[in-house]
Protein backbone atom coordinates (compact mmCIF):
# COMPACT_ATOMS: atom_id res chain seq x y z
CA UNK A 1 0.00 0.00 0.00
CA UNK A 2 1.55 3.27 -0.99
CA UNK A 3 1.38 6.38 1.08
CA UNK A 4 -1.08 8.02 -1.26
CA UNK A 5 -3.38 5.03 -1.28
CA UNK A 6 -3.34 5.07 2.52
CA UNK A 7 -4.24 8.71 2.62
CA UNK A 8 -6.99 8.26 0.05
CA UNK A 9 -8.41 5.35 2.04
CA UNK A 10 -8.31 7.45 5.15
CA UNK A 11 -10.07 10.34 3.50
CA UNK A 12 -12.85 8.02 2.36
CA UNK A 13 -13.23 6.36 5.76
CA UNK A 14 -13.72 8.99 8.45
CA UNK A 15 -14.36 6.26 11.02
CA UNK A 16 -10.88 4.79 10.66
CA UNK A 17 -9.40 8.25 10.63
CA UNK A 18 -11.09 9.15 13.87
CA UNK A 19 -10.11 5.85 15.41
CA UNK A 20 -6.43 6.32 14.59
CA UNK A 21 -6.52 9.89 15.81
CA UNK A 22 -8.05 9.02 19.15
CA UNK A 23 -6.33 5.70 19.78
CA UNK A 24 -3.34 7.07 21.67
CA UNK A 25 -5.11 9.60 23.89
CA UNK A 26 -7.92 7.12 24.58
CA UNK A 27 -5.49 4.42 25.63
CA UNK A 28 -3.82 6.89 27.90
CA UNK A 29 -7.15 8.02 29.32
CA UNK A 30 -8.32 4.49 29.96
CA UNK A 31 -5.07 3.33 31.51
CA UNK A 32 -4.22 6.31 33.62
CA UNK A 33 -7.64 7.56 34.45
CA UNK A 34 -10.16 4.80 34.40
CA UNK A 35 -7.89 2.00 35.55
CA UNK A 36 -6.46 4.06 38.39
CA UNK A 37 -9.93 5.00 39.54
CA UNK A 38 -11.12 1.42 39.22
CA UNK A 39 -8.10 0.21 41.18
CA UNK A 40 -9.01 2.68 43.89
CA UNK A 41 -12.58 1.44 43.99
CA UNK A 42 -11.60 -2.17 44.13
CA UNK A 43 -8.90 -1.61 46.72
CA UNK A 44 -11.47 -0.07 49.04
CA UNK A 45 -13.04 -3.52 49.37
CA UNK A 46 -9.83 -5.35 50.19
CA UNK A 47 -7.99 -5.60 53.45
CA UNK A 48 -4.45 -5.79 54.64
CA UNK A 49 -2.24 -8.01 56.76
CA UNK A 50 -1.63 -5.84 59.75
CA UNK A 51 2.03 -6.76 60.22
CA UNK A 52 3.52 -7.32 56.80
CA UNK A 53 1.36 -4.66 55.14
CA UNK A 54 0.53 -7.16 52.38
CA UNK A 55 -2.75 -6.58 50.58
CA UNK A 56 -5.20 -9.38 51.07
CA UNK A 57 -7.39 -9.55 48.03
CA UNK A 58 -10.54 -10.83 49.62
CA UNK A 59 -13.77 -8.93 49.38
CA UNK A 60 -14.81 -7.22 52.57
CA UNK A 61 -17.10 -4.39 53.51
CA UNK A 62 -15.15 -3.69 56.70
CA UNK A 63 -13.59 -0.48 55.43
CA UNK A 64 -16.85 0.91 54.17
CA UNK A 65 -18.53 -0.09 57.41
CA UNK A 66 -15.80 1.61 59.36
CA UNK A 67 -15.96 4.91 57.55
CA UNK A 68 -19.74 5.03 57.72
CA UNK A 69 -20.08 4.04 61.35
CA UNK A 70 -17.26 5.80 63.13
CA UNK A 71 -17.79 9.31 64.42
CA UNK A 72 -14.31 10.37 63.35
CA UNK A 73 -15.10 10.12 59.67
CA UNK A 74 -18.39 11.94 60.06
CA UNK A 75 -16.69 14.78 61.92
CA UNK A 76 -13.88 15.08 59.42
CA UNK A 77 -16.26 14.81 56.45
CA UNK A 78 -18.44 17.57 57.84
CA UNK A 79 -15.41 19.73 58.52
CA UNK A 80 -14.07 19.15 55.01
CA UNK A 81 -17.48 19.83 53.49
CA UNK A 82 -17.87 22.99 55.54
CA UNK A 83 -14.45 24.26 54.54
CA UNK A 84 -15.08 23.46 50.86
CA UNK A 85 -18.44 25.24 50.90
CA UNK A 86 -17.03 28.28 52.70
CA UNK A 87 -14.11 28.51 50.31
CA UNK A 88 -16.51 28.27 47.37
CA UNK A 89 -18.79 30.92 48.82
CA UNK A 90 -15.92 33.31 49.48
CA UNK A 91 -14.46 32.81 46.02
CA UNK A 92 -17.84 33.31 44.35
CA UNK A 93 -18.47 36.41 46.44
CA UNK A 94 -15.15 37.84 45.27
CA UNK A 95 -15.38 36.64 41.68
CA UNK A 96 -18.83 38.10 41.01
CA UNK A 97 -17.99 41.78 41.51
CA UNK A 98 -14.37 41.46 40.39
CA UNK A 99 -15.33 39.59 37.22
CA UNK A 100 -17.98 42.20 36.49
CA UNK A 101 -15.53 45.01 36.96
CA UNK A 102 -12.98 43.31 34.72
CA UNK A 103 -15.38 42.47 31.91
CA UNK A 104 -17.74 45.42 31.91
CA UNK A 105 -16.22 48.41 33.64
CA UNK A 106 -12.44 48.39 33.36
CA UNK A 107 -10.76 49.89 30.32
CA UNK A 108 -9.16 47.49 27.85
CA UNK A 109 -5.74 48.16 29.26
CA UNK A 110 -6.56 47.73 32.89
CA UNK A 111 -8.66 44.69 32.02
CA UNK A 112 -5.60 42.97 30.62
CA UNK A 113 -3.56 44.01 33.61
CA UNK A 114 -6.21 42.62 35.94
CA UNK A 115 -6.42 39.32 34.09
CA UNK A 116 -2.64 39.00 34.35
CA UNK A 117 -2.73 39.99 38.01
CA UNK A 118 -5.27 37.32 38.82
CA UNK A 119 -3.50 34.70 36.74
CA UNK A 120 -0.08 35.49 38.16
CA UNK A 121 -0.47 33.41 41.33
CA UNK A 122 -1.04 30.37 39.11
CA UNK A 123 2.61 30.56 38.12
CA UNK A 124 3.72 30.40 41.71
CA UNK A 125 4.05 27.03 43.33
CA UNK A 126 1.16 25.89 45.43
CA UNK A 127 3.56 25.31 48.31
CA UNK A 128 5.01 28.77 48.12
CA UNK A 129 1.54 30.25 48.37
CA UNK A 130 0.57 28.08 51.31
CA UNK A 131 3.83 28.83 53.09
CA UNK A 132 3.40 32.54 52.38
CA UNK A 133 0.03 32.35 54.10
CA UNK A 134 1.67 30.55 56.97
CA UNK A 135 3.95 33.50 57.54
CA UNK A 136 1.07 35.95 57.05
CA UNK A 137 -0.97 34.16 59.68
CA UNK A 138 1.80 33.48 62.15
CA UNK A 139 2.41 35.24 65.41
CA UNK A 140 3.84 38.65 64.57
CA UNK A 141 2.92 38.18 60.91
CA UNK A 142 1.12 40.67 58.70
CA UNK A 143 -2.39 39.62 59.72
CA UNK A 144 -1.41 39.82 63.37
CA UNK A 145 -0.21 43.36 62.82
CA UNK A 146 -3.18 44.41 60.67
CA UNK A 147 -5.63 42.71 63.02
CA UNK A 148 -3.95 44.46 65.93
CA UNK A 149 -4.90 47.83 64.44
CA UNK A 150 -8.58 47.00 64.90
CA UNK A 151 -8.12 45.21 68.17
CA UNK A 152 -7.98 41.68 66.79
CA UNK A 153 -5.09 39.28 66.55
CA UNK A 154 -4.26 36.83 63.80
CA UNK A 155 -6.82 34.06 63.48
CA UNK A 156 -3.82 31.77 63.98
CA UNK A 157 -3.44 28.34 62.44
CA UNK A 158 -6.68 26.41 62.21
CA UNK A 159 -9.88 26.07 60.22
CA UNK A 160 -10.11 29.81 59.58
CA UNK A 161 -6.57 29.77 58.23
CA UNK A 162 -7.39 26.80 55.98
CA UNK A 163 -10.43 28.60 54.59
CA UNK A 164 -8.49 31.81 53.95
CA UNK A 165 -5.56 30.06 52.31
CA UNK A 166 -7.66 27.76 50.16
CA UNK A 167 -9.91 30.64 49.12
CA UNK A 168 -6.79 32.49 48.02
CA UNK A 169 -5.24 29.55 46.20
CA UNK A 170 -8.33 28.57 44.20
CA UNK A 171 -9.56 32.10 43.50
CA UNK A 172 -8.13 32.29 39.95
CA UNK A 173 -9.97 29.10 39.08
CA UNK A 174 -13.26 30.80 39.99
CA UNK A 175 -12.52 34.27 38.66
CA UNK A 176 -11.53 33.07 35.20
CA UNK A 177 -14.75 31.25 34.23
CA UNK A 178 -16.85 33.96 35.86
CA UNK A 179 -14.95 36.65 33.99
CA UNK A 180 -15.36 34.69 30.74
CA UNK A 181 -19.09 34.38 31.42
CA UNK A 182 -19.39 38.13 31.90
CA UNK A 183 -17.45 38.66 28.71
CA UNK A 184 -20.02 36.59 26.84
CA UNK A 185 -22.87 38.82 28.04
CA UNK A 186 -23.30 41.47 25.32
CA UNK A 187 -23.27 45.05 26.61
CA UNK A 188 -26.46 45.64 24.70
CA UNK A 189 -28.31 43.33 27.10
CA UNK A 190 -27.37 45.61 29.97
CA UNK A 191 -28.44 48.64 27.94
CA UNK A 192 -31.68 46.89 27.00
CA UNK A 193 -32.59 46.09 30.58
CA UNK A 194 -31.89 49.65 31.71
CA UNK A 195 -33.78 50.94 28.72
CA UNK A 196 -36.82 48.92 29.73
CA UNK A 197 -36.73 50.46 33.18
CA UNK A 198 -34.61 48.14 35.26
CA UNK A 199 -32.30 49.76 37.78
CA UNK A 200 -28.73 48.42 37.94
CA UNK A 201 -29.38 46.04 40.85
CA UNK A 202 -32.39 44.63 39.07
CA UNK A 203 -30.51 44.35 35.79
CA UNK A 204 -27.81 42.44 37.58
CA UNK A 205 -30.24 40.10 39.28
CA UNK A 206 -32.59 39.41 36.39
CA UNK A 207 -30.31 39.57 33.37
CA UNK A 208 -26.61 39.37 34.22
CA UNK A 209 -26.66 36.87 37.06
CA UNK A 210 -28.68 34.18 35.23
CA UNK A 211 -26.23 34.41 32.35
CA UNK A 212 -23.18 34.23 34.62
CA UNK A 213 -24.42 31.28 36.65
CA UNK A 214 -22.84 28.68 34.32
CA UNK A 215 -19.44 30.32 34.80
CA UNK A 216 -20.04 30.52 38.51
CA UNK A 217 -20.96 26.85 38.59
CA UNK A 218 -17.85 25.91 36.62
CA UNK A 219 -15.70 27.91 39.03
CA UNK A 220 -17.39 26.44 42.07
CA UNK A 221 -16.74 22.92 40.81
CA UNK A 222 -13.05 23.78 40.80
CA UNK A 223 -12.90 25.46 44.18
CA UNK A 224 -15.20 22.92 45.81
CA UNK A 225 -13.57 19.75 44.56
CA UNK A 226 -10.01 21.05 44.88
CA UNK A 227 -10.68 22.01 48.48
CA UNK A 228 -12.37 18.69 49.18
CA UNK A 229 -9.19 16.86 48.22
CA UNK A 230 -6.60 19.13 49.75
CA UNK A 231 -4.34 18.09 52.59
CA UNK A 232 -1.13 20.04 52.10
CA UNK A 233 -2.58 23.41 53.04
CA UNK A 234 -4.07 21.73 56.08
CA UNK A 235 -0.63 20.52 57.07
CA UNK A 236 0.87 23.93 56.63
CA UNK A 237 -1.71 26.30 58.14
CA UNK A 238 -4.33 23.96 59.57
CA UNK A 239 -2.89 23.82 63.06
CA UNK A 240 -3.97 20.61 64.72
CA UNK A 241 -6.88 20.02 62.34
CA UNK A 242 -7.24 17.36 59.70
CA UNK A 243 -9.42 17.00 56.63
CA UNK A 244 -10.32 13.98 54.54
CA UNK A 245 -7.13 14.27 52.49
CA UNK A 246 -5.03 13.95 55.63
CA UNK A 247 -6.85 10.79 56.62
CA UNK A 248 -6.16 9.35 53.19
CA UNK A 249 -2.52 10.35 53.46
CA UNK A 250 -1.91 8.98 56.93
CA UNK A 251 -3.53 5.67 55.98
CA UNK A 252 -2.04 5.37 52.50
CA UNK A 253 1.19 3.94 53.85
CA UNK A 254 -0.07 1.51 56.44
CA UNK A 255 -3.58 0.64 55.26
CA UNK A 256 -4.18 1.31 51.61
CA UNK A 257 -7.67 -0.25 51.49
CA UNK A 258 -8.84 2.02 54.28
CA UNK A 259 -7.25 5.01 52.55
CA UNK A 260 -9.06 4.03 49.36
CA UNK A 261 -12.33 3.74 51.23
CA UNK A 262 -11.84 7.19 52.77
CA UNK A 263 -11.04 8.56 49.32
CA UNK A 264 -14.48 7.41 48.24
CA UNK A 265 -16.07 9.99 50.54
CA UNK A 266 -14.97 13.11 48.64
CA UNK A 267 -15.67 11.31 45.37
CA UNK A 268 -19.22 10.61 46.53
CA UNK A 269 -19.68 14.17 47.79
CA UNK A 270 -18.49 15.63 44.50
CA UNK A 271 -20.75 13.27 42.54
CA UNK A 272 -23.70 14.53 44.58
CA UNK A 273 -22.58 18.11 44.01
CA UNK A 274 -22.34 17.51 40.26
CA UNK A 275 -25.76 15.86 40.24
CA UNK A 276 -27.24 18.89 42.00
CA UNK A 277 -25.50 21.20 39.55
CA UNK A 278 -26.83 19.15 36.67
CA UNK A 279 -30.36 19.55 37.90
CA UNK A 280 -30.02 23.31 37.64
CA UNK A 281 -29.14 22.83 33.99
CA UNK A 282 -26.00 24.91 34.37
CA UNK A 283 -23.76 22.17 32.99
CA UNK A 284 -25.31 22.32 29.54
CA UNK A 285 -24.42 25.97 29.25
CA UNK A 286 -20.77 25.51 30.11
Amino acid sequence: MTLSSISSTLSRRPGIRLGLLLAAPLTWLVLVYVVALAALLVTAFWTIDSFTNELERTFTLDNVREITSEALYRTVTLRTLGVALLVTLIDCAIALPVGFYMAKVASRRSRHLLVIAFLMPLWASYLVKALAWRSLLSNGGLLDWAGGLVGLGTPGFGVTAIVLTQAYIWLPYVILPVYAAYERVPDSLLDAAGDLGARPARTFRTVVLPLVVPGLVAGSIFSFSLTMGDYITVNIVGGANQMLGNLVYINSGSNLPLAAAIALIPIAVIMIYLALVRRTGALENL
Binding site: S188, D191, A192, A193, G194, D195, G197
Partner: peptide, 17 residues
Protein backbone atom coordinates in the same frame (compact mmCIF):
# COMPACT_ATOMS: atom_id res chain seq x y z
CA UNK B 1 -30.35 57.37 33.62
CA UNK B 2 -31.97 55.25 30.89
CA UNK B 3 -34.37 53.63 33.35
CA UNK B 4 -35.74 57.04 34.27
CA UNK B 5 -36.48 58.06 30.68
CA UNK B 6 -39.76 57.28 28.98
CA UNK B 7 -37.98 55.98 25.93
CA UNK B 8 -37.31 52.47 24.67
CA UNK B 9 -34.91 51.14 22.10
CA UNK B 10 -34.83 48.44 19.46
CA UNK B 11 -31.18 47.42 19.26
CA UNK B 12 -29.23 46.61 16.17
CA UNK B 13 -28.40 43.14 17.55
CA UNK B 14 -31.93 42.94 19.09
CA UNK B 15 -30.41 42.35 22.57
CA UNK B 16 -33.01 39.75 23.49
CA UNK B 17 -32.41 38.09 26.87
Amino acid sequence: APFDRDVTTVFQDYALF
